[in-house]
C-alpha cells in the first residue's frame, strides 16, 4: 500500500463530502444527477481503498513513496517560481499585462542565469508576439491595470 494512494483516497472522500453537503441545498429535482456522480466517485474511491487494504493485509506495511514521487524536487526553486506566478497576477491586476510580463520574464531569466543577450531577445519576441497576436490580430483588450489604466 502506497502512502500517496492513501492521500488520494482521503482527498476524494473530503471532496465527495463537500459536494454532498452542498447538493443538499438544491431543490429535490436538481439533486439526483449530482448525487449519482458523487456516489460514483465515492464508490470508485472505496474500490481503490479496498484494493489497498488487501495489499496491506499481504505486505503488512505502508510504503512511503513520497520521496520517490518527488525525487529531484527543488523546493527553493519551485516555491520561488510559484511566488513569481502569484506576483505576476498581482502586477497584472494593478499595472497591466505588458509591464507584468516584462518584470516577470526579466525576473525568471535572471533567476535561471540566462545570458543578457538571450534575455533581451526573449523579451522582444514574447512582448511582440503577445501584442501582435492577441492585441492586434485577435483584438483582445489585455488588462491595462487598475493603477496604470487610470493614466492610459
Amino acid at each position: 500500500m502506497k502512502r500517496t494512494d492513501l492521500y488520494i483516497c482521503i482527498f476524494m472522500y473530503l471532496f465527495c463530502a463537500f459536494f454532498q453537503h452542498e447538493t443538499g441545498k438544491f431543490p429535490e429535482g436538481a439533486r439526483h444527477y449530482p448525487y449519482f456522480v458523487i456516489g460514483l466517485l465515492f464508490l470508485l474511491t472505496t474500490v481503490r481503498l479496498w484494493d489497498m487494504a488487501q495489499q496491506y493485509m499481504k505486505d503488512r506495511c505502508v510504503v512511503n513513496d513520497v520521496p520517490e514521487t518527488f525525487k529531484g524536487f527543488l523546493p527553493k526553486q519551485f516555491w520561488t517560481m510559484f511566488g513569481a506566478f502569484l506576483g505576476f497576477f498581482v502586477l497584472m491586476y494593478f499595472f497591466g499585462f505588458y509591464l507584468a510580463s516584462l518584470v516577470y520574464i526579466l525576473f525568471c531569466l535572471h533567476y535561471f542565469k540566462i545570458p543578457k543577450k538571450h534575455v533581451v531577445l526573449v523579451l522582444i519576441v514574447m512582448l511582440a508576439l503577445t501584442y501582435f497576436t492577441f492585441g492586434w490580430f485577435l483584438n483582445v483588450p489585455l488588462p491595462k491595470g487598475e493603477i496604470l489604466g487610470e493614466f492610459l
Binding site: F112, I114, V122
Partner: peptide
C-alpha cells in the same frame, strides 16, 4: 533551454 520555456509558456 527549459529556463526560457518556463516564463514563455506561463505568459
Amino acid at each position: 533551454s527549459d529556463a526560457i520555456l518556463i516564463p514563455c509558456v506561463f505568459v
